[in-house]
Amino acid sequence: MKIAALLTLLLVSLFASTVERGVEAYKKGDYRKAFLLYEKAAREGSARAQVNLAMMYKYNIGVKKEPKKALALLEEASRSGYPRALVELGIFYDEGIGIEPDPSKAFALYEKAASRGYARAMTRLAQLFETGRGVRKDPKRAFAWYKKAARKGDREAQTNLGAMYDRGIGTRADPVLARFWWEKAAAKGSADAQNALAYLYLQGRGVKKDAEKAFSLFLQAAQKGSARAGHNIAFLYEEGIGVKKSCSKAVKWYKKAARQNYTPSMVSLAQLYLDGSCTAKDAKKAAELLEKAAKRGDPAAPFALAKLYEEGEGVRQNFKEAAFWYTIAAQKGDPQAQYNLGLLYYNGLGVQKDPVRARFLMQKAKEAGLKVPGTL
């Protein structure tokens, strides 16, 4: 028995040594060496190496991206009950990576890892309860799991717990506790938490209003690559809130966020190009930005783009395109779009003339609170 125990300890030590060397190589950017070391340890049965190797296959790091190989490695590693393997495998089933999505299977895997005290598994469980994927939607249980994971120091859980306190989901609203958890997550470098904290300081909710502090927090988040934070910085520069007003810096930050495909920045930048208040007027650029944002599903872009097509500003006048984009905006509940589309139907511009549909759309806009001139 003693010899068997000693052999087991020796094997574990050898696995650990090989995996640690792989980790060191990975940190140094020597992905080929890391891959070979992980592969060796994985073949010998190290669950940690199997997971690390799976992540390299998943993210195309030092090896060709092969989700199915990653999945097979995680399946093997999870048999030992290794919590990280259970969670990573759960994510594959949750998101349908290399396999058909199966949120219920993901739930079971997260639950098994959470029962072993693994904080990240608790966070993933909370997300399923919050969204109702693979399990009945239950905000209170989501809140409870986020709280458990947050207390264990999970940054994502702390960020999401702050959001639940802020919005009063699964618990009573409490901006002070929202700030408490966001501060913890922000201190660990969470860009989402820094963004959220910035809003509290900007609005003075649960904290003394401080626009300069808000700007600083947005900047920290933007430096981590948050497009949303970059957009907010642009807005503060545009309006001169918490920082000296600067049109050039506003345009610079809007452009940066737009390049990251953040559609609100595309719309804001388009507006600046249209009114020429902060940069040279350029309706053509505005139209291009609005079309890109609209095709990506931005809620504000379709109406603005429809108006350009209707008026022939920045694009060739095209009532058919105007009607198309007004329809998209109208379906999203925009009363002005409903009214404008109604006018196109009434006059037969870009669509077949239809006075009945025209009145229906204009009545809908009126019922939504739009002041409609004249009689319908």
Rank of each mutant, 00 (worst) to 15 (best):
P67Q: 02
Q194M: 06
E313D: 11
E311W: 14
G168M: 04
A5Y: 13
D174S: 01
L161P: 02
P302F: 10
A222C: 12
Q317E: 14
V87L: 10
G132M: 10
G96P: 11
Y199D: 00
S17G: 10
A222K: 10
F303P: 02
A114G: 02
E100K: 15
V135L: 08
P355G: 11
F319I: 07
L11C: 04
G62W: 00
Y201C: 00
I169E: 03
A77I: 07
N232T: 00
K295Q: 10
S13D: 09
R155Y: 02
S46M: 13
K366R: 15
L14I: 12
K28Y: 05
A283F: 12
V251F: 01
E212I: 14
L305G: 02
A270S: 14
R172I: 12
F360Y: 13
F215W: 07
L11Q: 01
A150Y: 13
K147T: 14
P302E: 11
S277P: 07
I61P: 15
E183H: 10
Q317A: 10
K112L: 14
V87N: 05
A329T: 05
A304S: 15
A222R: 06
T123I: 09
E212R: 15
R136G: 14
W253V: 03
Y273C: 04
Y273M: 07
L89H: 08
K252I: 13
Y199K: 09
Y199T: 08
A126L: 06
Q352K: 00
R133L: 12
T375N: 13
I99H: 02
R359T: 10
K285I: 04
I97H: 15
R136E: 13
V63S: 09
G225V: 04
F218K: 08
P139W: 02
L344V: 01
E66I: 01
Y254V: 08
E76R: 04
R179S: 04
L14R: 13
L53R: 03
R79V: 10
V372N: 09
G348C: 05
A293E: 11
E311L: 15
E238P: 07
K245E: 09
E76G: 03
A178C: 01
T263L: 12
